[in-house]
Amino acid sequence: MFSVNGGTVTALQDISLTVRQGEFVSIIGSSGCGKSTLLRIIAGLETDYQGTAQFEGEPIRGTGLDRGVVFQEHRLFPWLTVRQNVAFGLGNSTSESDWESVDEHIDLVGLNGFEHAYPHQLSGGMAQRASIARALANRPRALLLDEPFGALDALTKIQMQEEVLRIWQKEKATMLLVTHDIDEAVFLGDQVIIMSNRPGTIKKIIPVDLPRPRDRGSYEFTQLRSAIYAEFFRQEDKPFAYAI
């Protein structure tokens, strides 16, 4: 579905990545490895780079309604209600069926009852839900999530991961998640793309063949998590290696 073949970009080098339709792909890397840049190229927010990026066979020339974006901050418009924010991307003349889509997606993210609340009245998790609904209301073909839960507390984060999984299964949109959380990457992704730092490049692609819903405590899950952990920290640096 996507393919990005990179020459040298300020942040990325020799990236070659293809995402299939309906797939959930996690991209993981330490901060500054260019994983967000990669996502922004696919979103069409970065256009100044060498290489080719395609979406559904067409070169990406800018942003498009076929790609929804959820940022780390909720980025809701403070002067609009939740419902108006979710409807933002539907244009000026929101039709009856558009409003149906809006309400359906408010429902989907579990914000019913908060349609007329303003962003400052929402908690961090609720605001991020609204921002997911806004990105989905246009029914994009792909949803790009740029560290969407990075600013949430640990408990809300786990809850939101489960929500996103449910939404992915229901909406059947392709999802591309950028994260620095190993657990999150394994819990959600069909494959986990590990990026390395300086130059920002793909180090390894690890398929996750575990059935969903995934048990974070299961042997296979922890094995995968350790394997990815080992990609970032050499074996002898592993803090628990001798502590057990």
């Binding site: 790609r67 940022f71 991307g89």
Partner: peptide, 21 residues
Amino acid sequence: SKLVEVGQVFKLDKLQLVRRV
């Protein structure tokens, strides 16, 4: 500029960006 970027994601033209964001 983060809010302006949201406008870009939703393909607002210059006039809409001024009026709506």
